[in-house]
Design a protein around this nucleic acid. Sequence first.
DNA 1: TCATTTAACTTGTATTTACAAGTAAAAATA
DNA 2: TATTTTTACTTGTAAATACAAGTTAAATGA
Lengths: 238, 238
Amino acid sequence: MVEPKTLPRYRRLYEILRKHISDGVYKEGDLLPSENELCQLYGMTRPTVRQSLSTLAGDGYIRKHQGKGSIVHHLPREIGILSVSGTTSAVGDRKLKTTINVKPVLMQWPSDFMFPLTELEKESGCIYMERIRFLDDVPIFYDISYIANINLPRITSRQFENRSLFQILRDHYHIEIKGGDQRIKAIPASAKISRFLHLKRDQPVLHLERKLETNYHDLFLYSSIFCNTEKYSIFGRF
Amino acid sequence: MVEPKTLPRYRRLYEILRKHISDGVYKEGDLLPSENELCQLYGMTRPTVRQSLSTLAGDGYIRKHQGKGSIVHHLPREIGILSVSGTTSAVGDRKLKTTINVKPVLMQWPSDFMFPLTELEKESGCIYMERIRFLDDVPIFYDISYIANINLPRITSRQFENRSLFQILRDHYHIEIKGGDQRIKAIPASAKISRFLHLKRDQPVLHLERKLETNYHDLFLYSSIFCNTEKYSIFGRF
DNA sequence: TCATTTAACTTGTATTTACAAGTAAAAATA
DNA sequence: TATTTTTACTTGTAAATACAAGTTAAATGA
């Protein structure tokens, strides 16, 4: 369905090393092979290897020390959602179950939308969906997503149960997340939110409003995420 | 007092362009000069220019588009604190006033500290301070900082009123922040917090726990930040 | 006029080369 | 033995070069 479109070499090495770190081949505190060794091992030159390593460092997988080498950073145990950088997913290998609360439907944008919209977006209307995400069978995220209805044929009829929205967008529409803005607030749980997240009314809830940029310059994903942080914190690196 | 230690060229260009963007020389949506033009303008080669631009992009100041150029991203109007990347300060040019609540004192680490500590850190004790930060005369942040007492002579007697802690550490001790971990929660305001932040008891407050890494591999800064997000949101980019 | 092709830009990827600077362990020296 | 120096690593910075690939506007053609 989709031409594989070979990844650049630095990206391939990035994926290999990232997988090795996630799989425990390289453990926390371990020294990665030196840049010159990686050059030999994977048949590329140092600038290319360095590009992989600096991306890994930017994503928090390793820390680089001049004169010493690249050291594997500890993997977060908490829920990482603050940075969507590249291929990193919100929760590592954790058992995160997702249920669809409101199936994707085409509708008008809310009148007081959280981010300003372009004319093109307003005209196109939006695809709306609601999901609830469970960690260890406890509802943690109540997730409202909006996508402008621009060149996304048949999206409302797709199965979202077990695959992430990002994955479907990547696999079927070549859409990649490139970056984004987000706002964070602490708010009291409304009746609806407290019901979905099994909380008492007015208990503090984390509210994230995000605008995600894609490889299509006029296509953005918006989401409003309510998060129960009683048991789990949101984790981030920088 | 401190040798200037010339910045690398890519870093200098980064600072120049960042200042131009902050000052409005390049406005939101503007196209920066092309990489080749920057090479000529500043007398460096493309790899060096590209290093500056990719750092700027990583910090959210610009977005790069293949075939088009580097476009100035909008500057956040809200409070940006989620990423401390490099030289970016929490609040751009805003009038943020800081008052010292508890002057720096040397003390033992709390017994149930929020992050695990090394033996060296435990032995050294910590420098503790509390600050409250006001935006437009409204208290927004209640900020508790901990630093291990490792090679920081006379720090408890320094003036912290108008300069940031980071600035003092950089100017007097050559300490630079390289990255860090953070956890975010929404919690109800305790009596103390509600008093400092002018909130009602149990109102939702954002709680950040951060561990900041420095250029000295065994020196970390810790902070516990309580934030009133009623009026302002916390802003982040990725 | 309108559609297509071409050309001239832009950034992206990759190699090669060189030296600077930080680290750590081996070697030399007191 | 204990200290200092040297050496051999490591990553950091920087240049010069080449081609790929995406974008845009001008030139060309029907």
